[in-house]
Simulated assay, not measured.
Amino acid sequence: MTPLATPPVAPPQENLRNNATLVEQFWKLQPPTFESGLDPLVAEDWIATIERIFNLIDCPDPRKVTCATYMLQHGARHWWDSTARSRPQGHGWTWDQFKELFLKKYYPSNIRNQKEAEFLMLKQGSLTLIEYERKFDELSRFAPALVDTEQKRARRFEQGLRDDLRQAVVTFELGTYHEVLAKAQLANFRESSNSNSKLSQSGPLEKRKWEDKGKGKQDYSKKNKEGGPTSGYYQLNPVCGKCQKRHTGLCLMGTGACYSCGEMGHFSKFCPKGQVKKQQQQPYQQKPGNPSKGQARVYALTGQEED
């Protein structure tokens, strides 16, 4: 019986060359770094991204831990160095072992349970349809048993929709999540179009109200120009602190001078200049015995007729 031939062992230089090629492929895909933080979703997303890169480059399991741990930084790097030292020499780490320890550290089970409960209570409420869809996709991964088929996923999405959108969708009994989403988007679009149509129909009335308010403002401005509280006189002549009145020039209160002409020796009531000014401002008065212009014209015409 011929003994089985032992497989050839690759020389060390070839192993180094293979490792270098693998690392180069890994770096070309720009793997993200990870540092310890308070958001557990970041930890789960980091693991998912690293695994997608491993699938693309067909990375063997013994090399996965080496590549992934190189991307740890700061607190996460200190945690892994301490964890790796606790393992006896010569015992390597599998990817599943690393992932279990990593998620236990940065994504504990109580947080996952909390996210699952948040998904169970998810309702659209005041969210837009786009915001509700994004939240549904984000939280559904924490309850995979509830959305493991297209029909389950569709019914769960329907249950959380706003009442008007849900009534527009459930009657069709759609079988897939994407069909339910498309029908909800169509109903939401029609509802928005109807709302915009109502607003456009009420536009002319709102415009007339605005114009009426504008006319009132114009009338008020005209009143101010004619001498209202905000006219130029009131702005240039504030209330005098001495006599509590508005006037131009110096205040003559308590000086003994006439308020009309500013001279001494008489009051404004008996001011000779003030009396002359009043007579000039009075309308023309007919003197007794002198006919008015209209009466004189009539008399002249009458006289001509008599001649």
Rank of each mutant, 00 (worst) to 15 (best):
S200L: 03
Q286C: 10
C67L: 14
R208G: 06
T171Y: 10
L181Q: 04
T302E: 15
L56A: 15
V169C: 03
L41T: 13
T128N: 04
A154W: 12
D148P: 03
P12W: 07
Q97A: 04
N290V: 15
M121W: 08
C67K: 07
D137W: 05
V65S: 00
R52E: 08
L250T: 06
A68Y: 09
T255M: 03
V239L: 02
V169L: 01
Q13K: 11
Q295I: 02
V180R: 00
D137F: 03
G160Q: 00
I57R: 00
K209P: 03
P204G: 05
Q124N: 03
C67F: 14
M253T: 12
Q235A: 12
M1S: 05
C59A: 15
L250I: 01
Q286M: 11
G262R: 02
A154T: 05
Y259C: 06
A48D: 00
Q218E: 15
R141I: 03
E100K: 13
N18F: 11
I53C: 13
E100W: 10
L199Y: 10
F119R: 00
R77P: 08
D219S: 03
K242T: 07
K209M: 10
E116N: 05
P60D: 01
T149L: 14
S109K: 01
Q73Y: 08
P60H: 07
K135Y: 01
R153P: 09
K273T: 09
F172D: 08
D39M: 08
W210A: 14
H74I: 14
G294L: 13
G241C: 03
L22V: 01
K273R: 07
R134A: 12
K245N: 00
